[in-house]
Design a binder for these strands. Structure first.
Length: 591
RNA sequence: UGUCCGGUGGUGUAAUGGUAGCACAAGAGUCUUUGGAGCUCUUUGUCAUGGUUCGAAUCCAUGCCGGACAGCCA
């Protein structure tokens, strides 16, 4: 199925009209935090357009604010993008040779800068290639600023931040011209150079565009283009003490990379006139990039702002950016979600300009349907209760055949050991069951998956009255192919052989928040779900000993799990990705 | 009472002047050695009021509701 939305419609029109040589998008995160599922939506859009229209999508660090950015974040962004687009759009990923800077050329007798992307299957090896960095363009952006000053379209202002706020006015009240607005070009040039030389302390001067202090659009009221920050930058080191603002750097970065469609979220809609003003005022020789906006993703039962996610990390409310409960790409990955599921989700939610809240059920459905087809089935008992099959002799072990994945015959089958002493799930036995309960009960029958039908003959309790053991008989003719194998029993439950079972830590993750809109108002942290993580030691069938890193399983009748290394005591650790749909819990809740 | 952008079932989206469709959710049934998956069926919608038109979710007007914007953040 080919996705379609208003942005793709625009691109498609441009392609049929031959407006551009090649479609060129970009994904421009600021390296001030980890990527989350909202970024995944944007990645799928930008790379999706590139692959559907034979274009390229540059990965670019939008790193113009050294105070907030860090290499830890650029490394995580690189890894997360690579993981998400792998085997889907790697050949559309635009990178550049390490250290390469924009090349100067002449276009129609006018000087011009361009930094072309390297893309194609070769880039997947990433040998000597790196993402684009807005900070690589500081020299060009500085030159463009000077060009604006020369045209009388930018000036150095001495207003303090407080004064500037006053002069700006408000949305329904026009602003006032700064007293420094009419400085001469010469003076502006001199002052701007001295800003760059480091003569002035932070915050004392800015370079501003000269547009219109009475504009109804606040972003046209002489926006700041450059500010002074005597701060080391993660990519340019100590080379600069003035840094361009987003609005000035972004449109120029797009231009320098030959971007055709600059796609961003709705809150930048009011910036678009400024984006266009800067590029048009500079009189650039090549076709200009255009900005298009779509609604960012809001998902139920989680928060999406980097500020809030950062807070969860810094206040140790989660174990890190990649905590499996986080909506970050790395968190979802550790949770066991696949790139395919994420892309499928992105496809299903569509692209519009309507600001809605997407039901988590849409994400959960994408995860389940993906895992249903790929996850190997295994038997594991989370909360064990002992079962003794009295008509199976002690010491006897039988190997039974179990299907690895009923959705995928090519996954084959495996052997699982059956013996006299087993574990079943505590939930699968009830002494006094409610109506419609069709698992084990005193005197009742149930099928052990892949094995025999058993009947509960005796319930053994401890001094406190808690059930500690069930004594059962098995219908030894009832396994697959046996004479009574087709007998109908209502319930089928999972089990493991007690002496063969291996221990594993299972981490039962649940929604991070208890309400659909934790950030609707007040303190979002008071809606944190206290039961978002429960750890247990489970009894697992022995084949799980061979589980590989990041391998995904369905523990039958329970949930999907992914292997996430070992816990502190050396036990294999499985993260629960998501439970199976549970019609019984709905049914029993009705009663 | 500024500017810009939006309002289609419970939720998210499609229909671009011509049968309001899809997905998720919800409900009913069927099947089942996973109360899983699959399959079948069902409920629920064009913000309002006018106008243009043979015909309006779509175009126009007015109103209502929601969002974004007043960082030397992005």
């Amino acid at each position: 199925m080919k996705p379609t939305d208003f942005i793709r419609d625009i691109v498609s029109d441009h392609v049929s009209a031959g407006k551009y040589k090649q479609i060129h998008t970009r994904f421009p995160p600021e390296p001030n935090g980890y990527l989350h599922i909202g970024h995944a939506k944007s990645i799928c859009l930008n790379f999706g357009i590139a692959r559907e229209f034979g274009g390229i999508c540059n990965l670019r660090m939008d790193d113009t604010n050294p105070a907030k950015e860090d290499v830890e974040y650029v490394d995580s962004i690189k890894a997360d993008v690579k993981w998400l687009i792998s085997a889907w759009a790697d050949d559309r990923l635009g990178l550049k040779p390490k250290g390469q800077l924009p090349a100067q050329s002449d276009v129609n007798g006018q000087p011009d800068y361009l930094l072309e992307a390297v893309s194609g299957p070769s880039t997947t090896a990433e040998t000597g290639l790196e993402p684009f960095y807005a900070s690589d363009y500081f020299p060009q952006i500085f030159d463009y600023a000077i060009a604006l000053v020369r045209k009388g379209l930018a000036y150095v202002d001495d207003l303090t931040p407080e004064e500037m706020e006053k002069y700006r006015g408000s949305p329904d009240r026009p602003g006032q011209d700064s007293p420094h607005r009419e400085r001469s070009v010469q003076e502006n040039l001199d002052l701007f150079q001295r800003m760059r030389q480091g003569e002035f302390p932070d915050g004392t001067r800015t370079l501003r565009a000269k547009i219109d202090m009475t504009s109804p659009n606040i972003w046209l009221r002489d926006p700041v283009l450059y500010r002074i920050r005597h701060t080391e930058h993660h990519h340019t080191g100590g080379a600069w003490c003035i840094y361009p603002m987003y609005d000035f750097a972004h449109c120029l970065s797009d231009y320098l990379e030959g971007i055709t469609h600059s796609i961003c979220t709705l809150e930048f809609e009011v910036h678009r006139p400024l984006y266009d003003w800067i590029l048009e005022s500079l009189g650039l020789p090549r076709p200009l990039p255009r900005q298009y906006e779509f609604a960012r993703l809001s998902l139920g039962y989680t928060v999406m702002s980097k500020r809030k996610l950062m807070q969860l990390v810094n206040e140790d409310l989660v174990s890190g950016w990649d905590d499996p409960r986080m909506p970050t790409i790395s968190g979802l990955r550790r949770r066991g979600v696949t790139p395919e599921a994420l892309r499928d989700f992105a496809y299903n939610i569509g692209i519009t300009k309507y600001n809605g809240i997407t039901d988590v059920a849409v994400l959960e459905h994408a995860i389940r349907s993906d895992l249903n087809h790929r996850a190997l089935r295994r038997l594991a008992v989370l909360r064990p209760i002992k079962v003794v099959i009295v008509n199976v002799p002690e010491g006897e072990v039988e190997q039974l055949t179990a299907v690895n994945n009923p959705e995928d015959p090519s996954a084959g089958s495996r052997q699982i050991p059956f013996s006299r002493e087993l574990y079943i799930e505590q939930d699968d036995f009830m002494e006094v069951p409610p109506p419609k309960y069709f698992r084990l009960r005193p005197g009742g029958e149930v099928r052990l998956k892949y094995a025999y039908i058993i009947k509960c003959e005796e319930v053994i309790k401890d001094a406190s009255g808690a059930v500690i053991e069930l004594r059962c008989t098995a219908d030894l003719g009832s396994k697959t192919g046996g004479p009574t194998s087709s007998r109908k029993v209502k319930g089928t439950i999972h089990w493991v052989s007690a002496s063969h079972a291996i221990d594993a830590e299972v981490r039962l993750y649940d929604r991070l928040f208890t309400v659909a809109e934790p950030d609707a108002g007040g303190d979002f942290k008071k809606f944190l779900n206290p039961h978002s993580l429960e750890k247990l030691v489970a009894k697992c069938e022995p084949s799980l000993r061979e589980a590989g890193p990041e391998q995904r399983f369905q523990f039958e009748r329970l949930a999907y799990f992914v292997l996430d290394g070992q816990n502190a005591s050396g036990l294999p650790a499985f993260n629960r990705t998501i439970t199976l749909k549970d019609t019984w819990s709905k049914e029993s809740a009705k009663a």
